[in-house]
Design a binder for these strands. Structure first.
Lengths: 219, 219
DNA sequence: TAGATTGTTAATCGATTAACAATC
DNA sequence: TAGATTGTTAATCGATTAACAATC
């Protein structure tokens, strides 16, 4: 048992994959799982799985493995998924609409509490049970509703302005989908995840994959 | 000048941010840009920028910087964005629809050539000028149209089956949005990018941000 | 020339991998 | 006990940071 200080970013990603698996196992009624089984299912070496759990403060039993429900709970706790976090979305384009319809929010403890846009034809309409407001109202709404996180699903050209509005309103965490670096005060957290990045990465990998065939030999 | 062998994953991400900036500068009519300017705009140290360009085989001029258009072209070439890549989408849910409406495809050299789903009410309809087909037709269509890449925008429970269908049809690269590890032959490239991951990462960062205030001192 | 910026090597840092003693 | 699996330390690897000579 060790108390974790700060997980590497890559480790957080692995924890998400792992949690997804654990929830499946929970649903299937499994009670224990070993690091090797987790590794095989998530495409990670068993060594790394144990190393990750070590940082988390693991609770496995030699020869038996980890208790599925307990481990899932530990991960949820470390990732802070159970703390309620009120959130607003700015930008109800195609991506924004997909996000509002998604079921990812509650699983991570987020609650979508407000939606903003600048398009007059959208303002006043209702999406996912939430009335779309003019982005100029963001300050008042964020304060009144105690919103602490914001999603920026706007074009790259509008991303920094949107971030400034959010920060001005007191938002402490921004999930940004524009492929730009946002400049914010250092006490504001930004998580950027542009869709284009995945596609471009795929392009690069496709080009390099052919060469990897001969030289590299997977064990 | 050095010939690059294989860029680290993080470097690919930086190159995308950089390319986005360079295209803005191109539009603004800038001719040269320095590593320091790029660093400031993309939130990366100038040292790292130069190190990245070194791996790419840079072509900057001391005291002047890098030629914007030339550098942009180099990055597009290294990321292979100019090679045409025919692509199919499986899963026309909210995310799938957002992807079809997106403008990211052509910029990275991808062409969306086919859409598949299993929902009878969707099959036969048209989205983004493409007729939605039953996923059972994937083999024939991929062969006939010479499709080499596939996007899996399906629920986690269907992701592996979808990947198997794609691989069976001869697809060599998969952009996966389900939060699961796909098991594919080693000559098939998978790029996974679940939306939930970003949100969960944000949750973790929010929790840890408060503690980081005092101890860490940004320069 | 003096100054600024690049190209490239070296040093540092952190993450991954390997190893193995402890445990059930 | 023997065997399997964990917890934890050590070794390796790769990426980041720092430094600085070369260049315009």
């Amino acid at each position: 048992m060790g108390e974790h200080k700060k997980m590497p970013r890559a480790s957080v990603l692995r924890m998400e994959l792992c949690l997804e698996l654990l929830e499946q196992l929970e649903a299937d009624g499994s009670v224990y799982v070993t690091s090797r089984q987790i590794g095989e299912a998530t495409g990670v070496s068993a060594d790394k799985v144990r190393q990750d759990f070590f940082h988390l403060g693991s609770e496995g039993k030699p020869k038996v493995g980890y208790e599925v429900a307990q481990l899932a709970e530990l991960i949820r706790s470390v990732l802070d998924l159970k703390t309620a976090k009120k959130t607003c979305l700015v930008g109800l384009g195609n991506l924004g609409r997909a996000l509002t319809a998604s079921n990812i929010w509650s699983r991570a403890g987020f609650e979508l509490a407000a939606i903003f846009d600048t398009d007059p034809s959208l303002i006043g309409t209702t999406t996912a049970g939430i009335r779309v407001r003019n982005v100029t109202e963001i300050y008042g709404v964020v304060k009144a509703e105690n919103i602490i996180a914001g999603v920026a699903a706007v074009p790259a050209s509008a991303a920094q302005d949107t971030a400034d509005l959010m920060v001005g309103a007191g938002i402490r965490a921004i999930w940004n989908f524009a492929p730009v670096k946002l400049h914010v005060p250092e006490d504001v957290v930004v998580e950027s995840q542009s869709l284009a990045w995945g596609l471009i990465t795929l392009s690069y990998e496709m080009k390099n994959n052919i060469k990897d065939q001969a030289p590299e030999r997977a064990k």
